[in-house]
Structures are given as C-alpha cells and as structure tokens.
Amino acid sequence: MDFLKVFTGAFVAFVQLFPYAVGASSWGYFGSDGPSHWSDVSATCGMSSQSPINIVSIDTIMSSMDAFTLSKFDTTTGLSLNMVNNGHTAQLNIDGAAVKVSGGGLTADYNTAQLHFHWGKTDAEGSEHTVDGTRFPMEMHIVNYRATYTSVSDAAGHSDGLAVLGFFFEIGNTSHPGIQKIVDVLSSITDAGTNTTVTPFMLNELLPSSLDNFYRYSGSLTTPNCNEVVTWSVFPQSIKITSSQMAVFRTLQSVEQNDDGNHNMYNNYRPVQAMGSRKLYANFNPNAGARPSVHLSLSLLALLSCILSRMF
C-alpha cells in the first residue's frame, strides 16, 4: 500500500510537471499532429471564435477602455518563479506575491498564473497574432485567470475565465536585460519535461515601456483544447530582442519531430484564424498619421494628370 501511494504521488507530480507527456503525440505543430488536425483532438478548435487572428488596423473600433493596473509586477517579495519546458514551449510559472492584472476594460481582477512564448525557425516568423499581415519573430503571452475561480483549468470552463496579454518582439541590436533573465535559464530546461527554479525578478522587466495602447477581442486558447474563454489584449509596442537571444530559444527540445527531422523547438505558433463576425477594438487610433496607400497615391496622380491634360 505504501508503494502504491508513492507511485501514485510520483505519477501525479510527473503529469503536473509535464502535462503533455500523456498523449503527447495527439497534437503538435508539424505533420499529422499539426494545427490543421487539432479539431480532431478537440472539436472546439474548429469553432468560430478562435485565436490567434490577423489584426487589421482599419477594422478596429475605437473604445474608451482604461489603462491596465498590474499588481506586484514591480516586486520580488513573496514571488516564486519556475521555468518549465513542457514539450511545446518555455513557460514561466508564477506563484505567490498576489500578482494580478485589472483595469484595461476587464470587469474583474485576474490572477497571473504563467507566461510563455511562441517563436519561429527564423527571425522572420514566430508570433501567433499578426498586424496587417506582419508576423514578428516571437510573441509572449501572460496568462491570467479570473480571481473568482480557483485555477487556470477551472477558469477554462467559464466564458469569462481567462484574460491573456500578448506582446510582440522585434529584432534589435541591444540585448534586452529582462529577456536575458529568461535566456539565462533556458540551458537548464533543454529537454522536454524539465524545469528549474528561477531567482525572482520583477516581472515588469519583461514588458515594453508603455502599456497605454492595446487591441481587444474575444477569442480562445491557441493550443488544444482551444477553449473560447479568453479576453485578448494585444499590445502594439514591441519588445526588442537580439538574434543571438532568439537563437537560444531554438535550442530547446520538443516532444515532436520537426520538418528537419530533429526535435529543436521552433515554429510553435498556430496560424491565424478567421475573425468571422467578431469585433476588434482598440483604445487608441492605430491609423492616426497613416500615409495614403500606394494605390491611392497613384490614383490621385492619374487624376491630376488628366486635369492637366485638359487644361493644356
């Protein structure tokens, strides 16, 4: 009986650490396990309010949503951080210190549970969301669950359960000091299913300098079971990262074999999904100061040419 208890406890701990170990081949990002087959894993993945999306600037509806309030993002007191390679991404689990988000048009407080990343094989791809068709080399998701629920898994069963903050990365020439704190521990979680304790640091070190502007829409988790329970906030101000920092993410090992025949983790992003009848909001004007399109400029030039030809 004691042996059974020990075995059961060890198995539960293993599943909690590596949630994709059981049935790990049922979904992935390549081949017959790729995103086009996810609806076979979960019918929800084929529904009409899925994420990510292509954010089309001219389709946004202006909204007066207020700024976000991030609680305990500026402290390490009572904070516990653990970095996990769960076989599909690098995930930083966040515990303690009452870390939470509110405001930003949300109707309640949301506890911060974890953040994770999606990246590409090259610096030309990797983000899940796109903006006017432009894809970024990496995207970070900060996952928060409504405080009235007990956990992310509990909240995933409720339509108002999750609020996810999405941030884009762009290649720059200077190493980002906040992201470097993530990069520094990736070598400790190279293999799928491994984890390491991270020396606490202030979470706002990972964020862009301003959180004033953001897009908002209703969508889903971007991995199976694709629950349509997410209030998405995607921030246009990017975070800079160097090519060498990006390269370290690609050294992580995935549970699945990629198209190159190895297990290097990359292209762990879902293609954009149809917007359908959903509305896209923004608390700023993304088209302010936009230049006329090339087609419009050529049309004006042709009209001016026609007028001049008739005058002379």
Rank of each mutant, 00 (worst) to 15 (best):
G157R: 05
T174W: 00
F214R: 05
E205I: 04
T194G: 01
P208K: 07
D191P: 02
A163R: 12
T197S: 12
L206E: 00
N195Y: 14
V164T: 04
Y217C: 06
S188N: 11
F169I: 05
V183F: 03
S159E: 09
S187M: 03
S175T: 15
I179E: 06
D184L: 13
L203Y: 00
P208D: 06
G161V: 01
S210W: 07
T194V: 01
I182G: 00
V164F: 09
G193S: 11
P208Y: 01
G161A: 01
D184C: 07
Y215H: 05
L162I: 09
G178H: 09
G172Y: 01
G161P: 00
F167D: 08
G166S: 12
D212Q: 13
D160P: 05
V183D: 00
Y217L: 13
I182V: 05
T174I: 11
V164R: 03
F167W: 03
N195S: 12
G161S: 04
D160M: 09
G172V: 14
P177Q: 11
D160K: 03
L162T: 09
V164S: 06
L165R: 03
L162E: 09
P200D: 02
L165P: 00
V185T: 04
I182R: 02
L162Q: 06
M202I: 10
Q180D: 10
D212W: 10
V183R: 03
S210A: 13
I182T: 05
G193M: 01
F169N: 04
L203W: 08
V164G: 04
T194A: 06
M202S: 15
L165C: 06
T199K: 09
P177V: 04
G193L: 01
R216C: 13
I179G: 00
E170I: 12
G161E: 02
L203C: 00
